[in-house]
Design a binder for these strands. Structure first.
Lengths: 129, 129
DNA sequence: TTAAGTGCAAAATCTTTGCAAATGT
DNA sequence: ACATTTGCAAAGATTTTGCACTTAA
């Protein structure tokens, strides 16, 4: 699992292992603050943001914006990029769930537009609320 | 067109008319800065943000986040809320296009989840880039 | 060894808030 | 007249940057 890092040319540092592991084990998308708290107060802000950015660029995680526009991060190395991918944002508790197989049908874009990636955001109320 | 304001219980102020008109005539979603520049430097920050918020709550406009997470606003009173609605985000120029009839298929959410609104974000390259 | 990653402090960016004055209905 | 809206200044929140130090490969 942590070989994912090397495969992307990223060094296996303590923080990165912890970060990747944490997101991997998270049921839903986590905010910067969620992650920082989970990893321990001593984690450095810049380092954390830089790693979240690096992971996202490497395709290891996704960034989704919740209802209020705040960034949340979810493990996504197993997801099939280039295919549709859905996120459910609960309007009540702000939790962001990853939904597999939400049923993606063909998307029609205008002439000249090239689709690289389709992301579906479903807003509503989750089972817990 | 400006009766939309009264219908939502919003007073018809100069700024609101200009703002609504501007977004109505915009081909794609605009950032706070785009809007501020278009409306003139003298427009007040708080007032603008407050109105964007009010318009969004009233369902007159949408807020979409672009590639880098920045909020962009698009006129949306004509859109059928509750139905699927697509935005195309160009990864090159960051332009956000509203796409009508991008083909909304049924979305499957887990047991207990209630869908209120589905938004599709398509990332890729636009015709201009 | 050395390119990549980290920690710190400082700043940039975007957005919100409180309140007195102005404005629409 | 009266609730709403505005403008200003100040603060809040999130994210980024520069640079010297440290670490994985």
């Amino acid at each position: 699992m942590e070989d994912l890092l090397q495969k992307q040319g990223l060094k296996r540092t303590k923080l990165r292992m912890a970060l990747l592991g944490y997101l991997f084990n998270s049921k839903h998308a986590q905010s910067y603050l969620d992650i920082k708290n989970a990893l321990g107060e001593q984690v450095d802000k810049s380092t954390l943001y830089r790693n979240l950015g690096a992971f996202e660029e490497a395709g290891l995680i996704h960034r989704i914006n919740d209802q209020s526009g705040m960034a949340k991060y979810a493990f996504g190395a197993l997801h099939d990029h280039g295919n549709a991918h859905a996120h459910f944002v609960c309007e009540s508790c702000e939790t962001v769930y990853c939904i597999e197989n939400a049923n993606s049908s063909k998307i029609n874009v205008p002439e000249g537009f090239k689709t690289k990636n389709v992301q579906t955001i479903i807003k509503g109320t989750c089972a817990a609320c």
